[in-house]
Design a protein around this nucleic acid. Structure first.
Lengths: 196, 196
DNA sequence: ATCAAGTCTGAAACTTGTTCTAGATTAGCG
DNA sequence: CGCTAATCTAGAACAAGTTTCAGACTTGAT
């Protein structure tokens, strides 16, 4: 601990608690996926009372969606530092998404937990889910690299995002192969080409 | 009851029970969506013991996915009797899917319940979910009307299905407008055009 | 007809997400 | 400092999905 350590303020301790909770949730998810993220365990593991956990995240789905936000923000930062090098927008986006896919493959149970929460979320989580959608869109737009996205392009971007999420779920449920995911993502990305 | 009524066989009574359960689940879902389909209520409402309900459908998700299968089969039959009249494959598929969408709009809570179950389903339901996927694919292929689907076309069909499901969820969660759903479905359907 | 196997029922028990309560601790403020 | 409001904790309580169990009823084969 640094020499200039000052007693942490309330806000700092709260931020620290939030981080601990997210980390505990992530660890549990890595081990056993969605069902292994049990609120009592998260609370105990992050050294926080159950009531406090529910003050920070009003439901299990809120927690898991927040975890996904976290991951996406990290990923977005990484991608901005080293943008994809590809021929056209379609290839760059395909590369980016398949890179993200590989990252998720390293912790498939974590991915399963987050994605299932995301699609299971009801209206009470729509704001947070929307934020995830915006992040995904931002990542795709960054990968495209174009100047302004025409409104028609935006629909194509949404189709790509839809496809990515859906293909991810199909893979996580064992209903689609990695090759199929790649094929489908690439197919959807064809819509991003200028003449498309 | 008909004059030639014979005492129903065991198999008939079982089929009857299954129908009663599906109907009860559907009614509850129409009223209050996913959360209103409570297994105890379904059991009581279909005059079946809770244990029996679980013998027929090993989980709530299984039940809801079976309800969706039922709906899709009905829809497929209807569509085969009056196929869509449109210019190209893209337009016909768009028409068909937006027609299905309008049908779902009439019972939005039922749609919400079924679709949420579908995307929340884990590996233990993958067989049933796969059947739903196949039905969706069959509906799209029928609407296209073409002779043989080239393997490249199959990926496009999957992208359309992905987009439809995903857009449906976004609409049900209040995160997308009907216009946006139509736009996105139409965009994805562009991949079905011969030159696409 | 009778026995074994499978099925249905009613009810209790168990699990896990969520809510509630009472008291302790802390933060901000006059 | 001393007060008030907010926060945190421990734990009980509640809700709904799921499992289990004992007993009654069918069914099918011998």
């Amino acid at each position: 601990m640094p020499a200039h350590a000052h007693p942490p303020t309330a806000a700092e301790r709260q931020a620290e608690r939030r981080r601990r909770i997210l980390r505990a949730g992530t660890q549990l998810a890595c081990r056993g996926g969605y069902e292994a993220v049990q609120m009592r365990e998260v609370a105990e593991s992050s050294q926080v009372a159950l009531g406090t956990l529910y003050r920070y995240f009003p439901s299990k789905v809120h927690l898991l969606v927040a975890m996904m936000q976290d991951q996406l923000e990290r990923m977005h930062g990484t991608l901005q530092r080293k943008p994809p090098a590809g021929e056209g927008p379609a290839e760059r986006v395909t590369q980016t998404l398949m890179g993200a896919f590989q990252a998720l493959q390293r912790e498939p149970r974590l991915a399963e937990a987050m994605v299932r929460a995301l699609t299971f979320a009801d209206r009470s989580v729509s704001q947070e889910v929307d934020q995830v959608t915006r992040l995904t869109t931002a990542i795709i737009l960054d990968a495209m690299g174009g100047p302004e996205p025409a409104p028609a392009q935006l629909s194509a971007v949404r189709v790509v995002a839809h496809t990515w999420h859906s293909a991810l779920i199909a893979w996580l449920s064992g209903r689609a192969s990695i090759a199929q995911v790649r094929t489908d993502v690439a197919t959807a990305c064809r819509l991003l080409e200028p003449q498309g």
